[in-house]
Amino acid sequence: MDVTGWLLRRAVPRAFVVTAVGGTGARLAVEAELRERGWYEAASPAEADMLVACGHPCAELSPVLDRVWDQMPGPRVRAAAAAPERAAGVLDRARAELLDTAAQRRDAEERDGAARGRAREEGGEDMPGGLPMADRGEDRDGLTLDRLHVSLGPALPAWPAGLSLSTVVQGDVVQEARVRLVGAREGGSSSFWEGKPARAASLDAAQNLLAVAGWPAAALEGRRLRDALLRGEDGPRTRERLRRWTLRVRRSRLLRWATAGLGEADGRAPAGLRGDVADRWSRWLDPDGGFPPYRADASRAALDLLPGLVIGQELAAVRLIVASLAPDTGAVGAYAPGGSA
């Protein structure tokens, strides 16, 4: 009686979704598929057993995907959803490969062998695991403390596709920040959201921010409404649920308290990005769809604004600011953000 197989068949897989620039369509399809099957989205590679790469990962993104693939522990499977319509098929094949215990055991033995080999030949170096010690720098209280170089890389849940924010962090306060697009598409800047209902674009940005703000229930509900709007189900039931959801999110005092006063964008920013994080996400909830966040110049301005807004903030605030700016990296094309303070 193969216990592993029995357990695996009972297990609900957790997918770690990484989106390449311009893979928004594939991401939306995969997210809708995962939600309907009742599967979960993993927060970190350690928790995941399925790596789903959405869109066309280019040369720059592949090493990132390989590193995530190495960090995934036990039975693991790698899937690539290049186009939205193939999402369901890709997930089914991935699920089947996950249940194939013989293949998983072989993969495990290979990795153990390789790991033992690596451990033998790098036994003597001084730094364990080759990790350098942290350097030190001035902090805001006049002390000189350790500083870490952390890059909030493209492979992160609820994070703009392909964005890489390399920061110098002291404790969890960001001291320096540099924005980079991993695998920006040289071709024309055609955003996925052109032609789609503006409300769906705002809903996608809102569910992303709610997931980062620690409110998974409202994020899931928002995602469900976004998928309904994208599929064109604009019936009275959907509109009623949308109204109630918007009311609940807008009236949430805790969300406003957590996001008020963060990431204040001054007058020079375009209309859609002005104000603080709370202003931005309440703009998305306006019934007339508010300012469609997905336009090329707004996204470029967001990428330029980002380093300035992020410096001096803690990681939680950084995630909220990035989610509130919601740059559409697909629409930006091959753009090297200049603002690296």
Partner: peptide, 13 residues
């Protein structure tokens, strides 16, 4: 069940 099957991880350092 999923976590019982999943392997444990080590992190350098």
């Amino acid at each position: 069940a999923r976590l019982l099957v999943q392997r444990r991880r080590t992190v350098p350092g």
